[in-house]
Design a protein around this nucleic acid. Structure first.
Lengths: 358, 358
DNA sequence: TTGAAAGCGGTACCAC
DNA sequence: GTGGTACCGCTTTCAA
């Protein structure tokens, strides 16, 4: 059970340590005879190279980190799978971490990871407003280093506040626009918006899209129909209740994600409001929850798994072919699409809608 | 940006390297004067010790791994949080990994982790039947080592097939018994069971509980009312459809988890079957999905977050105070509890039930 | 009390 | 082609 090292192999094969290393790393310049002897010996004593020692020497951990805001947000599960699969295919390990929407946590995590000589980071930032410290942190993201080696970062979901960082992003303006336009297309005129909290770039983009759609249709923007909450079922429930208490005319709701939409649906049922007859409802993310509620909830979908894959592929490419610090980051877009289900059916007949479950 | 090492500190503080190390590790036997000089110097050049080098020397990574079967199973999310929190409190990192219900994957993961000198492993095993290789693997679980140091393993959910491994387990027999008894208590007599696949210890225990309850109530056991599927919404949907196609009398269903229960509910709705009037339905896991479906689905709950915490605490304790290999593993039990919602309401009135969402 | 030096297990340069 | 050896950054023994 005691650890076998490269020395043991060298001794057994009766060659120098350097030769063993060459063979094991497929470096050229070793005679076939020695190569075979080394391989035999290594196999015989069950030698495998120690990744820690190798890391210390090479400053390469073959590990990347993926920081998401919360594992509770169903949306991320497929994305994580995409990242994991690409990493598995390329013999990288992945650390999955949750920042719990705290910038402080996120900063701490990044610091620790750099300290641990991580090879690269995929990051769904939880950044909201920019104080001095946050700004410095954002700038640092394009200059993370371990021993002169650059640690690339790929940012997800929201547009990058640091233009030198690569990113794969969703056009949240367009997403919200699509959702609201769908509601107007089925004839709704008083459209409420259950928004995300804080003044984050994502929130701003979505707000733009929401308002842009209303304006396009010549509908008034009523700030009272906009309400904020976190990405959770209960938050959607709370928001919807608050909306209803205002006793304003509402015939449609766009909820920021499916979990919130389900909560909103629940609040409506409690209040005896029919969906979609009285209020049409659309969510976002296209996760199982919205497909199995009744009525099934319309939503916005995007290729979550591929999203993860793209991010991982971009990151691994950067690890292998580092870019200059001063070069602008690449920005890959992810497309979104409206998925129509019962909650926004114009004729409001109780069909079962499309059952899209992932 | 170039890396600062212990040497730099030593040079600046004008002391030996050994002294710096002593100060940084709080070893006794350093004069106050030197201690201060070292601390100052370290602070000045922003030195932090390199965990990789330290690991190479100490064979301690301060990292544990948590292997679950699938992140898609909502049940694990809270459990992961429990593990993460304990680790955070104790300055450990956690690697979360998915085995995707494959023993091969699981074995590979464990091997890699050991190779990477992980300090400990928390494992939800995906073991089903025991061939030679699997058996050897299970035995090895109590003897994982890195350089003579034991790597403790804590197994979750199912009873341990290796008695020398510590575990935190659920009594699945009792869990199934509780579920079925609840269905009999509301007067149901033809109770179907949407079970988990394979001949795993968990499956066996649950089957026992299911049959035990039926026998207790003097109800016949009809193997045709038992059907197997994986822990996914669509699987529950498929299973329920198959059950219905048999055209047997069924007035209640126990589904192995809430995701399957929701799928089953969907299948019933499609078939025009009323829940709970025609068929009562109970799931298991108590995740958000079952609370927001309509009708809300009764389920079995357990303290998932605390479950994770207990496991992590047990593991960290083992890391710090290794037990003898030959000592039987500790077995901590987790309690379960029936959560009654609309899908098993006796009077079948459309109240909203208890909204338990986590 | 303090410091020099020998590893931990590899990699890679340099000389043969 | 091949082998010796310095070094990655830290901990710890041993001698002073």
């Amino acid at each position: 059970m005691s650890e076998v090292g490269i020395k043991d192999v060298a001794r057994l094969a009766n060659v120098g340590i350097a030769t063993v290393s060459r063979v094991l790393n497929n470096s050229a310049g070793v005679s076939d005879e020695l190569k075979e002897r080394v391989l035999d010996a290594a196999h015989q004593i069950g030698y495998t190279t120690n990744p820690i020692a190798r890391t210390l020497k090479n400053a390469k951990t073959d590990t990347i980190a993926l920081i998401v805001t919360s594992l509770k947000r169903n949306f991320y599960i497929d994305l994580i799978k995409g990242v994991s699969d690409v990493c598995k295919e390329n013999s990288y390990s992945v650390h999955v971490l949750e920042s719990e929407d705290s910038v402080e946590e996120e900063m701490k995590m990044v610091e620790t990871l750099v300290h641990q000589w991580i090879d690269g980071i995929i990051l769904v930032p939880s950044v909201s407003r920019a104080d001095k410290k946050t700004e410095a942190y954002l700038k640092s993201l394009s200059r993370l280093k371990k021993k002169e080696i650059n640690i690339p970062v790929v940012q997800l979901e929201v547009p990058c506040l640091n233009p030198y960082v690569d990113s794969v992003v969703v056009d949240h303006d367009e997403l919200a626009y699509q959702a609201v336009m769908h509601l107007t297309e089925i004839g709704r005129k008083h459209i409420a918006y259950i928004s995300v909290p804080e003044n984050s770039p994502m929130a701003q983009q979505r707000m733009n899209g929401y308002k842009r759609a209303l304006q396009k249709e010549g509908l008034a923007i009523d700030e009272e129909l906009i309400i904020c909450g976190r990405f959770e079922v209960l938050e959607g429930y709370r928001c919807m209740k608050e909306l209803l208490m205002k006793r304003k005319e509402i015939d449609a709701v766009f909820a920021s994600n499916d979990q919130m939409a389900v909560g909103a649906l629940y609040a409506c049922k409690e209040a005896g409001i029919r969906i979609p007859e009285d209020i049409a409802l659309i969510g976002n993310d296209c996760v199982a929850l919205s497909a199995v509620s009744s009525p099934a909830i319309s939503t916005i979908s995007m290729p979550k798994y591929e999203y993860g894959r793209s991010a991982a592929e971009l990151l691994l490419d950067r690890i292998r072919n580092p870019k200059e610090e001063s070069v602008k980051g690449e920005v890959l877009p992810i497309q979104t699409e409206v998925v129509i289900r019962e909650s926004t059916l114009k004729s409001a007949k109780k069909s079962l809608g499309t059952m899209i479950i992932e």
